[in-house]
Design a protein around this nucleic acid. Structure first.
Lengths: 221, 221
DNA sequence: ACTTCAATACGGGTTTTCCCTAAAAATCAA
DNA sequence: TTGATTTTTAGGGAAAACCCGTATTGAAGT
């Protein structure tokens, strides 16, 4: 592992980039930080400087390019450079495209604290991927939105303490069907049992009733 | 059931009483509304007016009396008058004292909406007791606060999907002991199984992390 | 010193959940 | 219509949770 780290920040809001600069200089191994506010500057700096990590915003004012295009270009020219994406609004589609198509190394939320940012830097320098917890949660919630109407009915009743047989009677189906729904729910929520399932559901149901648009949410009453 | 309802508001904050007045006049059956800002005025009005419901604040600026004392006095003089308590900060001790000692008929939260207030009025006029949902929840949470440190450890792990045996290993006890803790938790939370237990815990844990003082809360991390 | 209660542990039996596999029927979009 | 997804039903067996007790320890309070 290298002893010093050179970072390039590519971000068209200079003030944010400067704040980031200030934050990153606190990292013990970070040696030099460059800032580029557009693609041209970024590629120029990359051609003359030895850069280890590019911290990249997804959204730019111009329509000529965006974070995806820049990320792809950089990975194509310099495969060894780590790319960390900073975003305000994480989206599942972005997430897939970034990791599978653009091969980025990290996906962070802009309101991230110092410790998490440093941890992310250490991770990518160690050839590990990093996804911010709050983004992970967002992705998980998007996953939860895929639960079917029937599954949601079962889940609500399960959280109210009814056993499979009772749920079955309420929904006029057999208990084995309920069992299948619960199994599929466990899979979708990525949990080990009903207790964790209900805890997770109750948690996100409460936490996200005012920051998810309710027309697509499975949590509307 | 009477066709018209006369209400007396006993509340030392006049502006709040007037707001209440405005709200109550919207009720179809409410005929006349009086306001008293102290005990003397209240008793005087009660002696000359025919009052059906007294809406009473618990807290008064003076130290000479409070809502409890007024409620008891009124029930003693006029047993048929319904008393509805309005409060900002519900407490379990208050709740018991109000219903068992002062024989009040309703216990409401001050930030209550129109529909709930009207429903409460209809309830007490029907000789039914009424406790606001948010107060009910608060009382429940106070119940939850009786869980011991050990129980809380078990509960947290249970919500994370660990089975009794795994929880036992983490806490260096045997699985049978974990079972006892879970059983006691089910009793305290008044739920039927672990799924409901975890759902309820997760729900209140999230809902109340910023309106309960954390020094007495079992939910601190 | 005495009581109370939380925490610990054990046993045996019943109920419920969980896992695996399989497949028919209904619904919906292309 | 065809194909994909959802919803439904099903059986057997293992694992876990739940319920009924009893009982010991230690700490806290009176």
């Amino acid at each position: 592992m290298k002893e010093t780290i050179n970072i390039l920040i590519v971000e068209d809001h200079l003030s944010f980039a400067q704040g980031m600069d200030l934050l990153l200089t606190q990292h013990p191994k970070v040696d030099r930080i460059d800032i580029a506010t557009n693609r041209k500057d970024a590629l120029e700096i990359l051609s003359v400087q030895s850069i280890d990590i590019v911290i990249l915003d997804l959204h730019f004012e111009t329509n000529d390019y965006d974070g995806f295009i820049i990320a792809k270009k950089i990975k194509q020219l310099y495969p060894d450079i780590k790319i960390m994406i900073l975003t305000q609004h994480a989206k599942k589609a972005h997430h897939k495209r970034l990791f599978e198509e653009c091969k980025v190394d990290a996906y962070l939320d802009k309101k991230l604290g110092v410790e998490e940012t440093f941890y992310a830097i250490d991770q990518v320098m160690n050839d590990e991927k990093y996804i911010d917890e709050s983004i992970k949660e967002m992705l998980e919630i998007e996953g939860f939105m895929n639960i079917s109407d029937r599954e949601k009915e079962v889940l609500e009743l399960l959280c109210q303490g009814f056993i499979h047989k009772q749920i079955a009677d309420k929904l006029f189906i057999v208990h084995k069907t309920v069992e299948v729904h619960v199994r599929n729910l466990r899979q979708k929520f990525d949990v080990k049992n009903s207790a964790e399932l209900c805890a997770k559901y109750a948690k996100y149901k409460n936490a996200n009733r005012d920051n998810i648009d309710d027309t697509t949410s499975p949590f509307q009453e």
